[in-house]
Design a protein around this nucleic acid. Structure first.
Lengths: 351, 351
DNA sequence: TGACACAATGACTACGTATACAAAGTGTCC
DNA sequence: GGACACTTTGTATACGTAGTCATTGTGTCA
């Protein structure tokens, strides 16, 4: 006899109204004297149903407390109306990106399904989960997603987009801020202020964003005769920056400027320097990258490269919802320019 | 003839391996010479299949690139393995809560489906969406969810929990920090420091958290003979706090202490005061509420009430995954104590 | 040897919806 | 009046899986 039927579906049960939230379109059909097809149409393409019937069905649905089942709809229609996002579980920057995705997707009446991972080796698990839900699109955020994993995504016919992940360019459709040019612009700004020495503090040296940003800094600085050694903070966190700051103080001579690979780390460096008795911008200049909201808070007022996250996210969504690309084609790599924000951390009081 | 079949399912198509990601358990069954039932068992309850068959099926699945379809599974099993969260689209605090949920749910191999809303009137839309997905649980975060909407959730048989939403207590199972006691504790701390006058800056006065927190402050202060007028910032944002700060300066006399209803607003007030030439803690003492990461950043070093968000989230998840409550029972209201963090904003240099 | 528990597997059906197709009703024009 | 286009509705089926029940094999014990 197959499955045991959930709860009785006798007319009695229906008459006792609500409560039993196991109401299906079939129940509504019976209640309103039409076919299940018509009920389905009322909720998915109302124009194809005559106004009279439509209202009758709507009334019956309301009476019974019917709510369309999105799971069943998804199974049949092969569309979930959900976009997945694979993101690191920690980090101010990723949180803000996620929030922006959530907002913009909601506007287009999509939902956001979050697959967060704590450590890079949890990525495989997250990707495996993602694959099971037949999502309408997947956002791959985080530079720690490996090349092999990206290739795996490409073969899947589900649209996906790599977010701010230079290593993915050419492998998977990607959207990024112009990391290299942005950092170069910051370097140029410093050069104009007349610095002679500099240092760069990155988060995790193996991350592709880190590498590209450092390249942008080091090239522009070299062209102007400024050397720029690399220091690894070890993580993209405030604490890592705070702990890295003393390394600068220990050197025989303080650099004129410190370029930090991300705002969150920069805040830590800033406070760490203050703690070591080094003043910014008095003793050295400091720049960040990302343009987090906190960067424009008066307390920090950090010079940084502001990513237009709203634009980046909009582009990423375009890629996902846009027409699929021919398998032969090289996936698109969209690069969005950032804009420099000058704060007090590079505003010399003297000179 | 019903639906048009997606892509050919001839043995030829299957032989050309991967690419066609439309592989079902039926295909795997054919490939490995077992029934679809057995394939399903290999992926859901492997112990019920002999090791030999299990391996054979696994191999065939790998060869074909089979990935179980979670949508279909959910439809049949009536479990989605997804928890939904209805949250405001903006605000540092909510972002951090969301991140914590995402982390903890991932640990229990649940996913998080985010329904964010920009303005309070978008809440209805979000709740309607939530109902369509038959989620395993729903987190209602945000004090702006109305009473009527909460009652609607209660009738649904899907477990739900209100997060940090005092107004929901008794209506829906809820988990909150002890807002009143927390704010009282901060007030007590200020009283011990010898303040005679105070002011309170709230975010949105209609929010239930705001009311309860203010009550905690005003009661304790009154008991000690300190009056505490209420000032509304208008939003739970840095900017709102920044703009509210001058209102304090305009008064005939500056209060000895300012209690702010949330950290994010407090950061704004802090910077706004500095901008107006008022020093903290020199000219007045300042407290926040929430315990955001930034509160412990050396730049701000704010005295605040730290919510143990990890504990709150864990409790909330317990409620969702725990046994359902009898409909007659009064829903549980779990209250978790916070802990005070003393920073430099209440550390008097003199005296 | 037969009775029985138990493991392994398969046939069948249902989860709740959307779509292709057919059928019936309505109006227009020659 | 019939041919035609068009709208409105219904019938039948499939999306991909999991659970029920029945069936077969395998070992244990009297």
């Amino acid at each position: 006899m197959g499955d045991k039927a959930g709860a009785a579906s006798s007319s009695l049960a229906r008459t006792q109204s609500q409560a039993n939230h196991r109401v299906t379109s079939v129940d509504v059909a019976a209640e309103s004297g039409v076919s299940q097809t018509t009920v389905a149409r009322v909720f998915s393409s109302p124009d194809k149903v005559s106004p009279a019937t439509r209202e009758r069905v709507r009334a019956a649905a309301e009476r019974l407390g019917y709510v369309p089942n999105a799971i069943a709809r998804s199974l049949k229609s092969q569309r979930t109306n959900i976009v997945g996002a694979v993101v690191p579980a920690y980090g101010e920057y990723w949180q803000s990106v996620l929030a922006e995705f959530s907002r913009q997707l909601a506007e287009r009446s999509y939902q956001l399904l979050v697959f967060s991972f704590g450590t890079p080796r949890d990525v495989d698990g997250a990707l495996a989960s993602v694959a099971q839900y037949r999502l309408d699109g997947v956002v791959l955020a985080s530079a720690t997603i490996g090349q092999a994993q990206l290739v795996g995504m490409r073969s899947s016919e589900r649209p996906s987009v790599a977010f701010n992940q230079p290593a993915a360019e050419g492998v998977v459709p990607s959207v990024s801020v112009d990391n290299e040019a942005g950092m170069a612009e910051l370097a140029e700004h410093l050069v104009k202020l007349g610095i002679d020495t500099a240092a760069y503090i990155g988060g995790v040296s193996s991350a592709s964003t880190d590498q590209v940003r450092y390249r942008g800094a080091v090239q522009t600085l070299a062209e102007n005769g400024v050397a720029c050694p690399y220091i690894e903070a070890g993580a993209y966190t405030y604490d890592a920056g705070y702990k890295a700051a003393p390394q600068l103080a220990q050197r025989d001579r303080l650099p004129d400027a410190v370029m930090v690979g991300s705002d969150e780390v920069a805040f830590g460096v800033l406070d760490g320097l203050a703690n070591a008795g080094i003043s910014v911008p008095g003793d050295l200049l400091l720049t960040g990258f990302d343009g987090l909201p906190q960067a424009s808070w008066a307390g920090y007022d950090l010079t940084t490269l502001v990513q237009t996250t709203d634009v980046l996210v909009a582009r990423a969504i375009d890629v996902l919802t846009g027409p699929g690309v021919d398998p032969g084609e090289k996936p698109a790599s969209i690069v969005v320019p950032g804009s420099i924000r000058v704060g007090k951390t590079t505003r010399k009081s003297s000179a």
